[in-house]
Structure formats: structure tokens, C-alpha cells
Amino acid sequence: METKQTHGHRYGMVVDLDKCTGCGTCMIACAAENNVTVRADESDKERNITWMQLYKITNGKKFPDTEVSYFPRPCMHCEEDGNGGHNPSCVTVCVATATKVDINSGIVSQIYTRCVGCRYCQAACPYHARYFNWWDGYSLIKPFAKGMERSLSPEVSPRMRGVVEKCTFCHHRLMRAKNQAYADDRREIEEHEYTTACAEACPAQAITFGDLNNPEHQVSKLIKSPYAFRLLERLNTKPKVYYLSSKDWVRKMADNYMPGEFKPISKAVG
């Protein structure tokens, strides 16, 4: 579909890495909100599922100048594939039209019942944001943890073995907010009514979520900061997830810079 994806809203996220403490609450909130499965061996990082994933980075300096920081990484909900196409690379390659950019929200959708499990999108995603279900996570026949299915939320359908899943910006929360708005005789929702589980849960308020097309929304203001950047920006995938950091070494980690290519800004500004 070549139509410009903006149909009013373009939801995006800003993560302030100066505030992020690496506690991991966002990961848990995401998993609990979205019925993500958990296995006995979660250390198999190629096969476990974390829609929101913390990446740990260090400045590489010797003791005692070592510093640790974290990148929380949801799905980036890219706008382009980096080759001039107006769809993210995962959407471009999907053979089953199981993933698309939602024209109403800019959110990259994933329909599990449509997915054939070819994992092409997984290979195409430069952010490793897509996950394949190698097992039936919640199975009534052979439960991985007896009784745990009682905490499943009806707002997100549990996935079966053999399909790909990823962060949806808690799309069901948009639907929840819309239902509430309709009940209150409104068509549009307020900024605070729709936020993702990770943003809501972050105890340091490091994650801000909102409509990038609405100049009044916090996210639109935050991305104008000189400290704002995106992951692998030079791929031109136009992610809708932004980061803020006043630390040059953190910002430098966000892309593969050639020697001399990265321009430190913290000195220039502060």
C-alpha cells in the first residue's frame, strides 16, 4: 500500500535514557499485559520472547570509570524500509499480509492467525524486535506452569506455536481508550488515555508515549531535544521510537559510526 500511513495519528515513544535505571519493570509490565509466554529456560535469548527488551551497554572504560546503561527496545514501528519504500522492512517482506502499518495509528500490526510462520520478517527487522513462537506457550494439554493461564488477559489473544509476534504499542489499550471515549460521547481520545503498559509502569517515568502528529503531545516536544536520537538512524527506517541521552558514549552506541563520523553534542550544548 503506497498511501502515506498518516491518517491523523502517528503514535510514537520517547525513552529518556538518563532517567532509565535498567530495572526491567517495562519488560515485566509488557509481558504481563500482552500474555507473553515464559519458559523454564529464559536464558536462551534466541528463542525466548521479550517484546520489550533491555539491552545493557557499558562505556568500555576501565575500573573505576566503568559505566553501565540500558536501551529499552520495543518494536520501533518504522515508517520506511530504508530503501525508499513506504513500509517498514518487515511489512515489505511478509508473504501473508500478516503485518501491516495501521493507517489509523501508524502502528505496525501483527495478526497471529494470518501469520504462516516463515520468519522472513524476523530476518528483515534490523532491531530484532520480532519473535517466533517455537512452542505453544500457554497450552491446556501440557501446561508449562499449572494454573498460570488464569492470569491471561482477554484483551490480547494468546499466540499458538509457529507464529511471529512483537510489540504492538499495546494496541488494545487504544481500543480500550476508544471504547471509553465512545461511552463518553467523544470520538477523539485524550493524550493520557492511551499509553503503553511499559510507559505506564516505568517507575522513573523514563518512557513517554503519544501522538507524534499532535504538536501538543509530550512526545512531539521531546523529540525536538538536541539529545534525541533513534536506533540505527542511518538505515533510514524512520523508527517512531526515540531516545534521549545527555551522554555521548550512549548516543554513539545507537549506530555503527565510522571513525570521526559521530559528532558529540553534550559539550556543544551543555
Binding site: T113, D136, L140, I141, K142, S153, P154, P158, R159, M160
Partner: peptide, 12 residues
């Protein structure tokens, strides 16, 4: 698309 062993969380 609807394996019988994949639980369907009851609505309410």
C-alpha cells in the same frame, strides 16, 4: 488458527 489447546481467556 484456533488450536483447541491454546487457551481463550474468558471475557468479562
Amino acid at each position: 488458527q484456533n488450536w483447541p489447546w491454546v487457551p481463550v481467556p474468558p471475557v468479562g
